[in-house]
């Protein structure tokens, strides 16, 4: 992974990296094998830590020179001080944690800004699947059956924005990726319906 280029960075990660300030510090919750951190480290001089619980991912991070901390997001982040990190990032994990709302609060307690991505349950295909089949929607993005899915708190773009409003969290910017995981101009006409993956940049700063 010594030459992580933009081309082989996952689509949502290549958008996120643009939103992270150079020379800043990030915390990546559920960092996987550390692709994003590695890219940010190499190209934007960003310093950071990844949190992860999967043993193979942890070893991959270690081997690649990524700072990785074995820590379960469901057990809280109380070991991180208020405003100690510039940007706290969580990609595709919000829907899988026990209390997404509490974690969102924690992210913005620790970080000045937060970046969150999640699968949009309001995507037209998901809506159609439920409407026509009467079954819990499954797709490439949501491949699990209802009984064994790790995605226990799925939400739509509208749900998420309602939560942010309730918590007085300011949305700095947002975008969605279509079902080919591309950021295409056309989907911005109706992101709540056409976006399969939602990406939000948040802050509590006024």
């Amino acid at each position: 992974m010594s030459q992580t280029s933009l081309a082989n960075l996952r689509a949502d990660l290549s958008i996120i990296q643009q939103w992270v300030q150079p020379n800043s510090q990030v915390l990546d919750l559920g960092c996987g094998e550390g692709q994003l951190l590695h890219y940010l480290q190499e190209h934007k001089n960003v310093r950071g830590y990844g949190l992860e619980i999967n043993p193979d991912n942890i070893s991959a991070c270690i081997a690649n020179g990524i700072n990785v901390i074995e820590q379960d997001l469901n057990e809280g982040l109380s070991n991180y001080k208020d405003n100690s990190i510039d940007t706290v990032i969580m990609t595709q994990a919000l829907q899988a944690v026990e209390r997404p709302d509490a974690l969102l609060d924690e992210m913005l307690r620790i970080g000045d800004e937060a970046i969150v991505t999640f699968p949009n349950f309001g995507h037209w295909r998901t809506r159609l699947y439920l409407a026509l089949k009467g079954r819990m929607p499954m797709s490439e993005t949501l491949p699990h059956a209802w009984y064994n899915t790790p995605n226990i708190h799925l939400c739509t773009v509208a749900d998420f924005e309602a939560l942010c409003a309730e918590k007085h969290i300011r949305i700095l910017r947002k975008t969605v990726l279509d079902d080919h995981h591309q950021e295409h101009w056309s989907i911005n006409f109706w992101p709540a319906l056409l976006g399969e993956i939602a990406i939000y940049h948040l802050t509590r700063r006024r």
Partner: peptide
């Protein structure tokens, strides 16, 4: 061990931790 890790993070040091 986590006390050490947390202190290192607060001190802005490069650290990885496995339990």
């Amino acid at each position: 061990s986590e006390e050490i890790v947390n202190a290192l993070i607060e001190a802005d040091k490069n650290v990885s931790y496995a339990c």
